[in-house]
Design a protein around this nucleic acid. Sequence first.
RNA 1: GGACAGGUGGCGGAGUGGUCGAUCGCGCCGGUCUCGAAAACCGGAGUAGGUGCAAGCCUACCGUGGGUUCGAAUCCCACCCUGUCCGCCA
Length: 422
Amino acid sequence: MHDIRVVRADAAGFDAAMARRGVEPQAAGILALDEARRAAIALTEGAQARRNALSREIGAAMKRGDRDEAERLKAEVAAAVAAAEGAEVEAKEAAVAEALSVLPNLLDPEVPEGRDENDNVVVRQHGEPARPNFEAKQHFELGEALGLMDFAAATKISGSRFVVLKGALARLERALGQWMLTLHTDQHGYSETSVPNLVNAATMFGTGQLPKFEEDLFKTTDGRYLIPTAEVPLTNLARDEILAEAVLPLRFTALSPSFRSEAGSAGRDTRGMLRQHQFSKVELVSITRPEESDAEHERMTECAEAVLTALGLTWRRVFLCAGDTGFSAARTYDLEVWLPGQQAWREISSCSNCREFQARRMKARYRRGKDNVLVHTLNGSGVAVGRALIAVMETHQQEDGGILVPEVLRPWMGMERIPARM
RNA sequence: GGACAGGUGGCGGAGUGGUCGAUCGCGCCGGUCUCGAAAACCGGAGUAGGUGCAAGCCUACCGUGGGUUCGAAUCCCACCCUGUCCGCCA
């Protein structure tokens, strides 16, 4: 959500910022709506002031028993009320709000120019893509050979883009989630949080999923939505709050399922569990003072990177370009992990600083002296459990189809290796 | 699901048709006192929007949305939420 004052103050700058996103110029249209809105407000409020004054006079007239005068004034009030209603202030305010709420966030100046993922910039890499002396398999080949990853069963139960994990792979998923959550709470200062997975429309508006991206969500029959990420409930903890400065920064983490309709990605990544309607994810969310958010963004990204390093994965940090940065974000780092079976870098985490974009939608503020100031919100995957499972399988696969369990997961797995099926 | 009781400013809590944006307490900000702090005392302070160079003026907001009325925090209706009890149920 944008501040109309920003558009008024620098229309050309606003359009230039939108252009980086590939969005057509908006300022002129918004300013026209704003003019109409303000004119309607002036008209209506003048009429309301007249009505209020007349009402007071009526009260006075009644008090002294002057009924004729009171009746005469009532007629005048009726005219004022009609004028106020004719201006249609609400519709005009809604038009401005709508226009401002469907536009993406302003990008940080440092965000690289570019149209799509090909223009993203690698800023850091950990490890080198492995060159095993055997042909690395993809995770679904491994999982199906182990008899522990069953897509047919999931299709029967639910449909495409779901999976049933069994035995050691089900346990591996649980181990990953538990271990990551423990890492972030015990080592990284995040507060463990258990959140609803079903939220209302106001919550979805707060983080920016609504009104523009409703088709990406699953909606329930009673008008609620399944969360596409725990970012949604975690960030909305601050909605409509005025926080004490001393509590900032707030850092939350949650392990939750994420539900995505994947509308528009038909035919993409259809094999395996890379792109599912439901997956498990450990999410990180920070609520900070404005001056802290850039440092917090780096810190958060490093917390996610620590997960990948500890799992023995090969990864790189990518600075998303203008065209690839998400709607609510001012700047985003993706973490990509190397998948030896697929011979490709794939996104496993995305860490974004949304600055005050979500906070304005949510009215999430903190008290600084006598002022109420919008907080900054950040979110990052720490990390996606489903994709971490894939990465662990493909990275630590052995020639016989067994999978070596990373050291950090062994206490949770109760085994050093998922043995190949005999 | 049924029956009651409620939803008021950062928090607590008054207010039942006419200067009520709203008494009061806590907390908050400024000041007096003090070497400093605490206490005490004095003063200030809601949010959003419109207008104006500014001081200021105006409008809206007492869960949400309608309605009655010249006028609604106050009356009526619907919905949402909270509490208590009952029923049902992981």
